[in-house]
Design a protein around this nucleic acid. Structure first.
Length: 855
RNA sequence: GCCGGGGUGGCGGAAUUGGUAGACGCGCCGGAUUCAAAAUCCGGUUUCUUCGGAAGUGCGAGUUCGAUUCUCGCCCUCGGCACCA
């Protein structure tokens, strides 16, 4: 065999062999245990970035490991092909989005293949293909029929210069990204899906997902935001008009001293007609930031409307305010305010001199004063008329019952989650299959797909569809919808379509019921809420349509961390920063290895070392995977990304680390080549092993056991690799030319090769053949632990005195505690520390340590 | 402001159930090889030290024979957030 490791030639050969033998084609086989491993599909933006490489390597390692465990593995790949970047590229280059997207797909597919991922490419799909999107049009039509999709007016960002709707990310500081014009809010008719109908189930079923990270579950729970409370009406004084409010603290109802409405509330707008000051205030509220962080920290402001409302229980009049912290979009746009028991209300009352009334008192007599801040604990009611003496919990029910009995309110469960607006006033997306007739009546189309015209010019002034009567004008006053779906629509069900990508007569078929749910889903944490929530919702919609049987689409979820890298910059005269790519910078270190100086290779002059940040165009710190693959081969790139950090952590890019990974592969190659030169190997005689040989075999089998746990259960690929590195270090140190010695070397090398094969599949497959195997490594059985190799006659224990390490002793495996104690105490160094002291206690932890406690 | 992660050598990280802190890799130092360099190989590498040891996992307490691990308080940092009544 060649003494020299040449990744590019072996990787080409191995990949060709996989392709020729259709090695990763997945076929349904009910007699075998299936394993569906899915990595989130990429948006075809042009070329792969490091985040993709990391994501897909993780998925590939899991897939290949499961395959070697004997499972029937399916790992597909496809393209999230609709979206805004294609339109932006079209504006810049004039290339139609379809063409741009398809050429990107072609290039990126070649990159994925070059990395050697074990995909079943026969299942490839692109969401911009009519054969794909026709089925979501079909499903949408079903949802319209069922009343789960409906049309209502909603607000969008409107660029008055470009005459187009803008996505949130196209609005920068309130201005259009291209025109710079001040963005306006416009109300237009849009389609919504009733995800709120599924809010409770989406919440409850989170409990069925123990294989999801806790923080994703928490984020989803918070997003759904279930709360139990009470709705009730406050009547306007001297009027028939009522204001509905929602509260989660009805127990504090008797402490209400004012009611506040949102700036956009009808009552507030009405009052503004005769109050110019109020008009100004409402305008001011519109301008303020709307993020949660801004809201929580901003000054609480309001204005009295000069009206009173009647307390539903006491009949007292309390003032009505408009306040900047009340949101029109949530609940009823009005709140009851209890300054005594809500900190925000307390601050508002303090500012405007409104009465604070205490109605909850501590049960145990501890301080519950509301002089300095609101009292937020539960307690006993007082100053609450008929409800005095009840505790908070009992009062919740008693007050709710009272309101219901008197027709003034009722219990209600609220969700933060709102219905999903799916209309986008965009071109490059799936057409919404709706036709509006001359009477303004919307109906679904009956033939699918509604094809998106692809031969168009995108100039940035609105969707081309709106300028194509041949698309929308159907005659007789019938008009086709020109909006397209939110691209989350496509990504909400692609995982199911992979099971049967060629199903021509239905959205899904029996094959989906074989493969689903996805056993392992891998993707970025940035999708923790929206994509994963929508996909879960779609799964339930498809289930209720009889298309799938499972309640949840993804049994296990792994969220990989970001890829980050050092940044380098120079500050220009005008204070702006120019960023330099790490590849163009040389870093000098001091004797300890601390970076002290960085220079630009081009001019040799110094550059500033910035922080370590997420790889991004804006900081020019991205590392192009292609260059690394060309230089080191796919295996090295795969090995480094899996070795540098556990999958959930951020991964800090290091060129030196890549070198190290490459060095390891070279050593493995060399060690194998050297061993193979020693010729034929006799069979191992297990009962004639020397102590050193036993030790080495123990290391081999302990490594198998460790790697099984690390890859199969913990997904800590970095420690699995470290374990094999340890084994290979031990093998290279063993200089043993005896028959048994060479047999153990063979065993150790073959084991290392198979254990590493999910991670670095090309070099291992090549070596596997060099070791005389005719079947490819992907079809080899996973190494099995030889339990007899793990048996030890003696083991090492550590000896502590008062918890401090003082000696290491070797004892027989079957020694009893008394013998162990004696050996420990008689140790010379231990004696030094216990000499003239009294032994108070000896703790023996079997197989681990002895701790001698002395006074 | 709220919610959720983190904090261990010069660096990335390891220590899985409370039991040898720093595995493995990088970097750095020394040596071998070389005309020389690259590559490769061998050895060393937490800090302090009177060379016996001592200290040490963000800071301060606590529980324990024993704490990176558990509890309480604080500091820093990263991520998420839709004014959530």
């Amino acid at each position: 065999m060649d003494q020299h490791y040449d990744p590019s030639s072996i990787e080409t050969d191995v990949q060709k062999n996989w392709e020729d033998t259709q090695a990763f084609k997945a076929t349904e086989d009910p007699s075998r245990e299936k394993f569906y491993c899915l990595s989130m599909f990429p948006y075809p933006s042009g070329k792969l970035h490091m985040g993709h490489v990391r994501n897909y390597t993780i998925g590939d390692v899991i897939s290949r490991y499961q395959r070697m465990q004997g499972k029937n593995v399916m790992q597909p790949m496809g393209w999230d092909a609709f979206g805004l970047p294609a339109e932006n590229a079209a504006i810049k280059s004039g290339m139609p989005p379809a063409e741009w997207t398809r050429s990107n797909i072609e290039y990126m597919k070649a990159q994925l293949q070059r990395l050697g991922f074990a995909y079943d490419w026969d299942r490839e799909l692109a969401t911009c293909d009519p054969d794909y999107y026709k089925w979501e049009q079909w499903l949408f039509a079903r949802l319209v029929d069922k009343g789960l999709a409906y049309r209502k007016t909603a607000t969008v960002n409107w660029d008055p210069v470009d005459q187009t709707v803008l996505a949130n990310e196209q609005v920068i500081d309130g201005k259009g990204w291209r025109s710079g014009a001040i963005v306006e809010k416009r109300n237009i008719e849009q389609w919504f899906l009733r995800i709120t109908d599924y809010a409770q189930e989406l919440l409850d079923d989170l409990d069925k997902l123990p294989g999801w990270p806790e923080r994703v579950l928490t984020q989803q729970r918070n997003w759904i935001g279930r709360s139990e409370g009470v709705t009730m009406d406050f009547q306007l004084e001297n009027s028939e008009e009522k204001i509905g409010i929602y509260t989660t603290h009805p127990d504090t109802l008797m402490g209400v001293t004012y009611v506040a409405v949102a700036a956009e509330h009808p009552l507030s707008l009405q009052a503004a007609e005769s109050n110019p000051e109020l008009v100004d205030f409402i305008e001011e509220c519109k301008k303020g930031g709307v993020t949660e962080a801004e809201m929580e920290t901003m000054e609480k402001k309001g204005m009295a409307l000069g009206l009173n409302v009647i307390h539903p229980v006491s009949g007292e009049a309390v003032p009505l305010y408009v306040a900047n912290f009340v949101l029109m979009g949530y609940g009823t746009g009005a709140v009851m305010a209890v300054p005594g028991h809500d900190q925000r209300d307390w601050e508002f009352a303090e500012k405007y001199g409104i009465e604070r009334k205490q109605v909850i008192f501590s049960a145990d007599g501890s301080d519950c004063s509301i002089e300095k801040e609101a009292y937020l604990e539960k307690g006993i009611l007082s100053n609450s008329g008929p409800f005095d003496g009840l505790d908070s919990e009992a009062a919740f029910n008693a007050i709710a019952d009272w309101l219901k009995k008197h027709g003034k309110g009722d219990k209600q469960i609220n969700f933060r989650l709102r219905d999903w607006g799916v209309s986008r006033q965009r071109y490059w997306g799936c057409p919404i299959p709706i036709i509006t007739d001359a009477n303004g009546e919307a109906k679904t189309v009956s033939e699918f797909p509604v094809r998106l015209p692809e031969d168009v010019i995108v100039d940035g002034s609105g969707s081309p569809l709106k300028k194509m009567p041949e698309f929308y004008d159907l005659g007789n006053g019938q008009v086709r919808e020109t909006d397209t779906f939110d691209t989350f629509f496509e990504s909400s069900w692609y995982y199911a379509r992979y099971c049967c990508p060629d199903a021509a007569d239905s959205m899904l078929d029996d094959r989906a019921r074989y493969w689903l749910p996805v056993d392992q889903y891998i993707g970025g944490i940035e999708h923790a809420i929206l994509h994963l929530l929508y996909a879960r919702f779609f799964n339930k919609l498809m289930r209720d349509e009889g298309l799938v049987e499972n309640d949840e689409p993804f049994s296990k979820l792994l969220t990989q961390g970001m890829v980050i890298a050092e940044t380098y910059y120079r500050t220009n005269d005008d204070g702006s920063k120019e960023w330099f790519n790490p590849a163009d910078v040389t870093v000098e270190h001091d004797d300890k290895g601390t970076a002290i100086r960085a220079t630009l290779q081009a001019d040799g002059q110094e550059v500033s070392i910035g922080g370590i940040e997420k790889m991004a165009k804006s900081k020019n710190n991205g590392v192009d995977p292609q260059g690394l693959i060309d230089r080191y081969g796919a295996d090295t790139v795969r090995l480094y990304t899996m070795f540098a950090a556990p999958p959930e952590h951020t991964l800090e890019w290091s060129d030196a680390g890549v070198e190290g990974a490459h060095r390891f592969l070279k050593r493995l190659w060399k060690l194998s080549a050297t061993h193979l030169q020693t010729g034929n190997i006799a069979e191992l005689k297990k009962d004639e092993l020397t102590e050193a040989q036993q030790k080495l075999r123990l290391k081999i089998h302990a490594t198998i056991s460790k790697v099984n746990d690390d890859i199969g259960r913990r997904y800590t690929f970095n420690t699995a690799i470290a374990a094999v590195m340890e084994l290979s270090n031990a093998l290279s140190q063993a200089k043993d030319d005896s028959d048994n010695g060479r047999a153990i070397m063979r065993e150790g090398l073959e084991t290392s090769i198979l254990l590493l094969s999910p991670i670095v599949p090309h070099i291992t497959d090549t070596l596997w053949h060099e070791f005389g195997h005719t079947e490819p490594a992907i079809n080899a059985a996973w190494p099995v632990v030889d339990e007899t190799a793990l048996v030890q006659n003696e083991l090492q224990l550590i000896v502590q005195v008062n918890g401090k390490l003082r000696a290491k002793i070797t004892v027989a495996t079957d020694a009893d505690n008394k013998q162990i104690e004696e050996t420990a105490i008689s140790d010379q160094n231990v004696q030094k520390f216990i000499a003239d002291k009294e032994i108070r206690k000896v703790i023996v932890v079997p197989g681990r340590l002895v701790n001698i406690v002395v006074s």
